[in-house]
Write a protein that binds this DNA or RNA. Structure first.
Lengths: 168, 168
DNA sequence: TAGCACATGTAATAAGTTACATGATTTT
DNA sequence: AAAATCATGTAACTTATTACATGTGCTA
């Protein structure tokens, strides 16, 4: 597909856990072409290009699938702020946690939408079971962290009510 | 504290969800000093500096605590590979998921260690309840995702056994 | 014909890691 | 005396986003 199309498809399919900008996509496609991993042909419009994996590219792709996935470096601003929670008033901290809870709720709704659209548009596709597994990852995470938000909000309120007991 | 100490303390306290390298720490301390948010004084060693928050710095810090936490852009290589699971054999995919499961188990053990050390070394500290909340976040996430790993591994094995039924 | 979606690409900027260079102090 | 730890700092590099510049082709 074209770089433009690639961008849209990435957003729509794996947007929950991956993203690429045009500034990455276009230069990378050129590099991949230089390495012989993709080939370009004329698109429908003037100046547009349609890329396909070469045989070498497909081989390298499968090779990559077997390489152990590297975990990314996590930077969680909510937790950073929560860590210093005793320097803020409890309302401020609750606001932060509540906002995160809303975010996870929105994620869940989003996942439900994706799942429905996926099943409606691509029923029977061999990739489907794997696509749903990635959605389930997000769901499992969101459900667990909504539970954490609720528990944490309760704890913060308890702390605010009886600050003397909090330190025990 | 000194830049060096800051690096160590960050690793030991909030290392689960935040990290800073020397290449960030030293230039940033200088910038903070230029802005009047921290002040530097002579350390115990020749050439070493000990930084403290100024009153303005402490004010800005509290201000920052109230600003809504921004979620970071997630890039999950495991899910990216899993998404293309139908292009690999099921053993390869299982390996990836199993590796992730090991990672989460290791995280859990790590959190247990942190919690024990925290309670032993800083019992009664007013920050403790908040510190434990950040640990609990990691625990909740890890437990949920270990569950997802188990469920996913089961599904992949089912797919491998009856590929024809998989797509339904 | 105006506006939107399609389409490519580069430059400026941001954010951060790694490696290197250097040296003091403490511990073994 | 050697090794480890404490300590500062810079330069090179990597990775990625955002904004900008430019233009095509369809549709209301």
């Amino acid at each position: 597909m074209s770089g433009y199309e690639l961008h849209r498809v990435i957003d729509e399919s794996i947007g929950n856990f991956w993203s690429e900008s045009f500034g990455q996509i276009y230069p990378t496609l050129k590099q991949l072409q230089a390495k012989g991993l993709v080939s370009a042909s004329e698109g429908a419009r003037l100046g547009s290009k349609v890329y396909s994996l070469t045989e070498l590219g497909r081989f390298r792709f499968r090779e990559w699938l077997g390489l152990p996935a590297q975990p990314q470096v996590v930077r969680n601003e909510l937790l950073l702020k929560l860590f210093f929670g005793n320097h803020a008033d409890s309302e401020t901290v609750c606001q932060q946690v509540t906002q995160e809870r809303h975010r996870f709720e929105a994620d869940l709704a989003h996942y439900a939408g994706i799942e429905a659209r996926l099943k409606a548009d691509y029923g029977g596709h061999p990739g489907m079971p794997y696509w749903l597994m990635t959605v389930n990852y997000g769901k499992a995470e969101a459900v667990a962290l909504i539970g954490w938000c609720d528990e944490t909000l309760k704890q913060i309120k308890t702390l605010a009510a009886k600050p003397a007991e909090a330190v025990r």
